[in-house]
Design a protein around this nucleic acid. Structure first.
Length: 606
DNA sequence: GCCGTTTTCGGCCCGACTGTTTTCAGTCG
């Protein structure tokens, strides 16, 4: 399932490719994850034990993060290989895929009105209170809840009071402007880190000598987006430091401050949580507040089996009944019998087992990157000249820079005609003569047309050092067609890499429908590389997808896709994604010199 | 409902906060 059935265009064929035949698309992982989440919510309302509910939520997460079709896995009896999915859930997934629904969902939907689930998602209200409201007052929707709160009827229920009525009304008002509270606005990582690092530096300055402040939370794990900022500090004067948070220009207001820390909000609306640690327990606090929640829960669960209880304050040993504190995270992990786990890996995706077995990868670093293979100039939609980009790349310490402007059909007034590309090649060659200390490569970011062909003739592409092929049009094709389109480009012998392979824009545009299993298989077979586009809005491939690609034997490239000299620095976010994908230096092609990389390409073409 | 460096049965992270409570349940991260 999900694999290529028909013959694909032979590598080396120069004629227009024919689209490949691919299998009937399966029920999407997103749809399965949503169904499991709904069933978890319904069981929660039904009063199931919390662990059963958590099992459904854990399974939904595993399905959402799976890089292959879970419906296809379930058909093969292999969905049980995913963490948190056992025989029961595999059966339910199979039933869902084959009949379109799950019987227990249907039964519980009949029992609880749909509006009740919405109520459980309001802050301060959970399943217990929703059920109470339903049984005591007959409340079955947010509208009914509002009426009851306004009529001061909530306080007639034992355990509820006037303050809850007020907070419910406030939450309902909030919900109207933001229909799903779980979809609260998140900030892209680049912006969050920029603000977070400024806050940390500002606090360190105000705290004076002996004060250290660092980012924790999801910003430290370098996730795609961030909900709030966690800062961890050590200082000799805790109260003074907490108060000084409000003096920073980014802070709109401080909601609380004390010796243990402070809470605040930036002018841009991001919640900030400052925690002040005693130096001897900095490791415990930092480990706790870096998360992720799933990583910490799994870590603690494993520790309990060994008689150890982990919290932000230390590790309690049942054997001695004492709590030990740890100045560094290294000591925390060591005490638990593990090697140190880099923050980017802390997602409960197998890192705990690997750390116990001493099998964590040596993650790629920014310093490993030798060159940039995707950049734009004024020839298309960039803002700097070839020389300016080359000089900036050299200043970053790169050995090479590929100039890859858009191609003949790009549109927006930025298309580069074949004639213009010929001229551009000459300009790049001339600039390469002028500039010392960096090799400039003549390249192009070529459009993959809807039929899978490219928008320059092969004879012209052959004159280039480096070709990236990307989809920039017709995003709405069905999965079969899009997969065939992409594989045709992967099969093209002159294509070095596929740019931003899924087309996603974080928080704005979902990936287009595509069978990535088939794409990875084709890329591994042909040696065509796949890009991790480092633009902070894209980070495409994602961490999950890049990890699956590497496992499938695909070689990756990390590209800034810079449109001006300053955005060459976006490489940082691509490396972050690669690290979250467990990638080492060996997985990434542009950690190699240009001669080595070129040799790899030529080898793949044989 | 899942899962095993004490278990195939009986467990399943930890602490803070809030609001409503005379000792705690529910929710949250």
């Amino acid at each position: 399932m999900g694999s290529i059935r028909g013959a694909v265009t032979r590598r080396g064929a120069r004629s227009r490719p024919t689209l490949v035949a691919v299998a009937e698309p399966e029920l999407s992982n997103t749809a399965i994850a949503e169904a499991l989440e709904e069933l978890g919510d319904l069981y929660e309302l039904d009063g199931a034990i919390v662990h059963r509910v958590l099992a459904y939520r854990g399974a939904a997460k595993a399905v959402r993060e799976a890089s292959v079709s879970v419906a296809a896995l379930a058909r093969q009896g292999r969905a049980v290989e995913l963490p948190g999915i056992g025989k029961t859930l595999q059966e339910k997934i199979l039933t869902l895929a084959e009949t379109g629904s799950i019987p227990s969902t249907e039964r519980l939907r009949a029992k609880f009105p749909p509006g009740l689930i919405a109520i459980t998602h309001l802050p301060g209200l959970g399943p217990k209170r929703a059920r109470l409201l339903h049984s005591e007052l007959g409340i079955d929707s947010p509208q009914a809840l509002r009426a009851a709160a306004q009529g001061e009827r909530l306080r007639t229920v034992r355990g509820l009071g006037a303050k809850l009525e007020a907070s419910v009304l406030a939450s309902l008002e909030e919900m109207e402007s933001q229909p799903d509270p779980r979809a609260a606005p998140r900030v892209l990582l680049a912006r969050a880190v920029e603000i977070g690092e400024a806050l940390a530096a500002g606090l360190a300055r105000l705290g004076g000598a002996g004060t250290h402040v660092q980012l924790a939370g999801s910003a430290r794990r370098l996730t795609d987006s961030v909900k709030d900022l966690d800062l961890i500090a050590t200082t000799t004067r805790p109260s003074t430091l907490a108060e000084s948070l409000g003096k920073l220009e980014q802070i709109e207001r401080v909601t609380s401050a004390g010796r243990a820390g402070a809470r605040a909000r930036t002018h841009s609306g991001i919640a900030v949580d400052l925690r002040i640690a005693r130096p001897e327990q900095l490791g415990n606090l930092l480990q706790h507040f870096t998360g992720s929640g799933a990583h910490n829960a799994a870590l603690r669960e494993a520790a309990v089996r060994r008689g150890l209880h982990v919290s932000e304050y230390g590790i309690l040993d049942d054997a001695t009944a004492t709590t030990e504190t740890h100045a560094t995270e290294q000591e925390v992990y060591q005490r638990l019998g593990m090697s140190y786990i880099e923050p980017e890996l802390r997602e409960n995706r197998g890192e705990l087992e690997a750390a116990r077995d001493g099998e964590l990868p040596e993650l790629l670093t920014l310093q490993d990157i030798c060159g940039e293979l995707h950049s734009h100039t004024v020839a298309s939609d960039g803002h700097n000249t070839i020389d300016e980009m080359g000089t900036a790349a050299r200043e970053r310490g790169y050995e090479y820079l590929a100039i890859t402007d858009h191609s003949a059909s790009h549109g927006f007034g930025n298309d580069v005609s074949p004639e213009q590309l010929r001229r551009q090649i000459e300009l790049v060659r001339a600039a390469n003569e002028r500039l010392e200390g960096i090799e400039l490569l003549a390249g192009s970011e070529v459009n993959i047309l809807p039929d899978g062909s490219l928008d320059y003739e092969d004879a012209l592409l052959e004159q280039l050092d480096w070709v990236i092929a990307s989809v920039h049009t017709s995003f709405a094709m069905d999965e079969q067609a899009m997969t065939g389109r992409m594989i045709a480009a992967i099969e093209h012998p002159l294509v070095g890499a596929i740019g931003h392979p899924t087309g996603r824009l974080i928080q704005r545009r979902a990936p287009y429908a595509i069978d990535l299993d088939a794409v990875f298989a084709a890329a591994a077979r042909t040696g065509t590389m796949l890009e991790i586009n480092a633009n902070p809005d894209r980070r495409d491939l994602s961490d999950i997808h890049a990890r699956a690609a590497a496992r499938a034997g695909v070689l990756l490239v990390i590209d800034s896709d810079a449109h001006r000299t300053s955005t060459l620095a976006n490489m940082r976010w691509g490396v972050a994604t690669a690290r979250r994908a467990w990638l080492t230096k060996e997985h990434v092609a542009n950690t190699r010199s240009w001669p080595e990389l070129r040799a790899l390409r030529q080898q793949a073409r044989k």
